[in-house]
């Protein structure tokens, strides 16, 4: 096993170009488990902790550009007000020790369907910034996940950052786990309301080969909100519409039976989570001063 420790981003990209087999490691919360439990013996590992710009975030063209190495703890502390959905999801990641090390960049790199950051990123149309020695490219989050633990990265690329709009309205995140802390999602759901564009974003976790959106549910509820002039009236969404929204989210899922839960339960629970999240988010919108 080789160990690379680039000091700069440029150096990291050169190393990745020269050693495309090198597995990047940041917080180690995925990679180290694989190594410690002898599931994986990468030919090379590249430590990204030394690269200062990866741990920075900034405003960028109306969005937030958040370095791939920003930890969950910092996301909660520093960006919780602007990215409430992501912050809520971050709070459910592991434990304080894990949130102090784990990063959204790592979550994206692993691309597990159960990654907690994915649903809020999907719900907010985040963009993943990939870089290599041949340049930088932006991939829309809904095109980023290509299969179970697979993503759109090329072998020579590293995740530089993700870009996301600061919330313009309420966001919610909910997850089901069979323990009251430190649990991998049986399924999860995120919703984001954008009053400016009168749009609703969704994200589903742990209920398909990849994290998913629920476009039909989004369109349905957007239509309800527009048709009944609810954005302006700030009136309640009908129970039947909320239920339908939940059902459409459940229908968008492609769950399987596994050690954490059954497909049927996942669908059932997603419908509940989606209905509740939408209810909470909408009430937040209605009742906001």
């Amino acid at each position: 096993m080789e160990f690379f420790q680039p000091a700069t981003w440029a150096e990291a990209l050169q190393m990745k170009a020269a050693h495309p087999e090198a597995v990047p490691i940041a917080g180690g919360t995925d990679v180290m488990v694989e190594i410690n439990l002898d599931h994986q013996r990468p030919a090379a590992i590249m430590d990204l902790n030394r690269i200062r710009e990866l741990a920075e975030w900034e405003r960028y063209d109306g969005m937030l550009r958040i370095g791939a190495g920003v930890t969950y703890t910092r996301l909660i502390d520093e960006l919780g007000d602007r990215l409430p959905g992501l912050a809520m999801a971050s709070r459910t990641v592991g434990s304080p020790q894990i949130r102090n090390r784990g990063t959204v960049g790592g979550n994206l790199g692993t691309a597990s369907p159960a990654g907690d950051a994915h649903p809020p990123l999907l719900a907010t149309d985040a963009i993943v910034e990939l870089a290599s020695t041949s340049g930088t490219r932006h991939v829309a989050i809904h095109e980023f996940f290509t299969g179970p633990k697979r993503n759109a990265m090329r072998k020579d690329e590293l995740i530089a950052a993700f870009l996301v709009h600061p919330a313009t309205g309420p966001q919610q995140f909910s997850k089901v786990g069979t323990r009251n802390a430190m649990v991998i999602a049986v399924c999860s759901f995120a919703v984001s309301l954008d009053p400016t564009h009168r749009s609703v974003g969704t994200g589903i976790g742990s209920a398909g080969p990849t994290p998913l959106r629920a476009p039909r549910a989004e369109h349905f509820i957007e239509d309800v909100l527009l048709d009944e002039n609810l954005w302006n009236r700030k009136a309640e969404v009908s129970a039947s519409a909320l239920k339908r929204f939940g059902d459409l989210v459940a229908r968008a899922a492609k769950p399987i039976d596994d050690v954490r839960g059954t497909a049927a339960y996942r669908r059932h629970a997603l419908a509940v989570l989606a209905r509740r999240c939408m209810t909470w988010a909408w009430n937040d919108y209605r009742l906001a001063a």
Partner: peptide
């Protein structure tokens, strides 16, 4: 509704009673 972020003060200062005392805890399921 939706006051979950009340608990999202910096890490370790979270732990709002309401959320952690519910089924699902900070997973914010109910």
């Amino acid at each position: 509704a939706g006051r979950v972020l009340d608990g999202l003060v910096p890490q370790g200062e979270g732990g709002d009673v309401e959320l952690t005392s519910r089924p699902g805890g900070v997973s914010n399921a109910t």
